[in-house]
Design a binder for these strands. Structure first.
Lengths: 127, 127
DNA sequence: TAATTGTACTATCTATAATAGTACAATGTC
DNA sequence: GACATTGTACTATTATAGATAGTACAATTA
């Protein structure tokens, strides 16, 4: 369910954040479903509890999950997700960086389009 | 000519690498044209010479430039550029990461396609 | 000869991520 | 009520990557 790649360039906490976002948005995790506790998840993926807590704090701040002292952490309704314009622009900048690198590697516009269409088509769940 | 953003998430040396690659591939820097020396460029963009040298080493390793002790560093012919399959896969992974983040933000397949087409169309020079 | 240039080092500083450990309030369970 | 669980907030420490600082030397050019 929650997979971490310790050799990844992305930090562990960022991987948890993106991982959970994907499960929430795709509906694998359902509204009000209980998330593993900070300590549980930390043990499951063998990282420090503080790392999980950091990810949960970010996820709560963006409305993907909500927490209740003593009770636990739960999945928010998708209507609660808050996306800022900066988030979109950051994603755009990441994609632009990747496209730039393909250009530097000598790919043509059409080859780039094909590669990206491949990536898009890999995901069957989509709004 | 060589622009560095010190607040960027990309390291300075990586920014130099990508910057030069772009200028070489687009033809702004012409074959056998002399590059600024390590020390010159370091002063121009106010970074440490070691940082520039690191970037130059990477660029030479990938065939974008070549160096000659005592003479300087020069732009390679574009036929000398070596692109590994891993480079393409890394670019693909970066793009996938950006597309994933757009999905997490709730964008539809079509909105994502439009945003990417925008990015692609921003670049007029292209093979 | 003197200046420039690429190159190779070592040492140090800095920022970020992750780990380790402690503590406490709120909650649920027995 | 007692106790375990949970979220939360700290501090301190370690690990790593990137950048800086400084030195040195061989090859080349002027």
């Amino acid at each position: 369910m929650f997979l971490i790649d310790f050799k990844n360039r992305k930090s562990i906490s960022d991987q948890i954040v993106d991982n959970v976002k994907g499960l929430v948005v795709s509906g694998v995790l359902r509204t009000d479903e209980k998330m593993p506790s900070v300590r549980e998840l930390a043990e499951e993926i063998t990282v420090n509890p503080n790392t999980v807590q950091k990810a949960y704090r970010i996820l709560e701040g963006q409305g993907y999950i909500y927490s209740s002292q003593g009770r636990g952490t739960f999945v928010s309704d998708r209507s609660q997700i808050r996306v800022s314009k900066e988030d979109i622009l950051e994603s755009r900048a990441i994609i632009k960086d990747g496209i730039d690198k393909l250009y530097y590697a000598g790919l043509s516009r059409e080859e780039t389009r094909r590669l990206i269409e491949d990536v898009i088509d890999e995901r069957e769940e989509w709004t």
